[in-house]
Design a protein around this nucleic acid. Structure first.
Lengths: 173, 173
DNA sequence: GCTAACCTTTACGTGAACGTGAAGGTTGTG
DNA sequence: CACAACCTTCACGTTCACGTAAAGGTTAGC
């Protein structure tokens, strides 16, 4: 009778203990508890003996936090902001489903749109500046490749002209 | 005769004291000294009384550090790595200009290419993951906009069908 | 019902990236 | 040369994002 699914309840949520969550997400248990401490996520439930129990949406949320932290390089405070936006989004969704009044629906949608656009703006600003850094690096690469190609061309006919000062500019770095 | 340019010397380098550099870069003097402490940049010179004196290239370097830190979100250790690469690049450039032996030149260019490609790889990885996050956010935005458009459409002909359960799915947030 | 393997809270430790004095030397302007 | 406004080098303090150990409670298998 480990967790014999009650016949009345739904799809048997399958809750995970913190160690399993850590294995799944690549975070440490300490980190997960810390994220709870600073308000980034509450476990879906607690066991009888107060064990933290996480569901699938908690997993998603942790992965989202991780990608915001590692991929986008946001601080936990900024991530908290974005997650609050997510929460507001969810509340709005509830309200959206709860009404059919077009005026209300329009208001909720407009709020959601504003938040999403704020997020997109933050991410795009980061991406744009990163992109220009990449462009610069690529330009440097191409100058180097041009230099190598030039050597190849010279090497293809190395004995032809021993002293041909061809007007090839120095590939700067 | 504040700084009457010696007729023999070149373009009068115009060196800045640390406070001026701070104003120019938006960093604090402490931060600039700290970056020196951890080896990110040495001031171009010191005054008679040991004041730090910075030139234009120092300014560039600090701006570069700042954009790597703020825009790309790299740690100072990673930035140090990239700057070492830059230094190696510069040294290679010297050697490149100092030789005409194709074999040497090819070696230097190959080394430079490797480093630049490493940098590009780091930056592109970051950009790619950031990009997929942006895609997700954009997808959410489009669902919201679809919801609004739907409301607009319904509003354009609001009195036509009072009970037409059109098969329009709920725009999930 | 005993025990190993997990979990809990509490609390102090750590490395990165600076902030903030303290105590004294330097510079340039009147 | 006096003096305000810089600068210098210690050196300790702080915030963030966790690591790590201590002292105990819980769960699952036998």
């Amino acid at each position: 009778m480990s967790h014999a699914q009650a016949p009345s309840s739904g799809p048997a949520p399958r809750l995970l203990k913190i160690n399993e969550v850590a294995a799944e997400t690549g975070l440490t248990t300490r980190t997960i508890r810390y994220y709870e401490e600073v308000g980034l996520l509450e476990p879906a439930a607690r066991s009888e003996g107060d064990y933290r129990l996480y569901d699938a949406s908690d997993l998603d949320r942790l992965q989202f936090i991780r990608s915001l932290r590692d991929d986008a390089g946001f601080s936990l405070a900024q991530i908290g902001q974005m997650l609050e936006d997510e929460a507001a989004r969810a509340r709005n969704r509830e309200r959206l489903l709860g009404t059919t009044d077009p005026r209300e629906r329009r208001i909720y949608l407009a709020e959601g749109l504003e938040r999403v656009e704020r997020q997109i703006g933050l991410l795009e600003a980061k991406a744009a500046r990163l992109g220009s850094m990449i462009d610069e690096a690529r330009a440097r690469r191409e100058r180097i490749e041009a230099g190598i190609a030039e050597l190849d061309a010279a090497g293809a006919a190395p004995l032809a002209t021993t002293s041909s000062p061809s007007p090839t500019p120095e590939p700067a770095s």
